[in-house]
């Protein structure tokens, strides 16, 4: 098992896009209560695309690394396309699959982003 690869540890210790965004158009929070993982996603958008995003939060290495990678990958992506993303995208970015015990850590940021996009559409 090679879950704690260099990339994951590095992104945990030096996350990217981990900052608040006071002028965000929309924010959304999510949590895995059982783990104590929390994330808040900030989004700037135009009529159809995500133009910028960032996150704040605390949690395990997997959840922070996944949030870092997600916020990189989602910049410039069509709002409509975000809902198509799923676990396989996260696994690809992390470079490893996650077992049942950790998948919720990996998916927290994505699910929080998808909820935010749903709110935008409504």
């Amino acid at each position: 098992m090679n879950l704690y690869r260099e990339l994951i540890i590095d992104l945990y210790k030096n996350p990217v896009n981990k900052r608040s965004m006071p002028d965000a158009h929309i924010t959304n929070s999510g949590a895995n209560v059982t783990c104590g993982d929390r994330v808040r996603i900030y989004i700037k958008k135009d009529s159809e695309k995500i133009t910028d995003l960032s996150f704040e939060g605390e949690g395990c290495a997997i959840s922070i690394a996944a949030a870092s990678l997600l916020t990189e990958e989602a910049k410039g992506v069509l709002l409509n396309d975000i809902s198509d993303w799923g676990p396989h995208n996260i696994f690809e970015w992390l470079g490893t699959e996650l077992g049942p015990a950790r998948i919720k850590c990996g998916l927290l940021a994505l699910e929080t982003l998808q909820e935010a996009v749903k709110k935008i559409k409504q």
Binding site: M1, Y4, D37, I62, R102, C105
Partner: peptide
């Protein structure tokens, strides 16, 4: 600086 879940998972290895 290390989340308990990460600690437990590495110990499991």
């Amino acid at each position: 600086g290390i989340h308990p879940h990460d600690i437990a998972e590495i110990l499991n290895e």
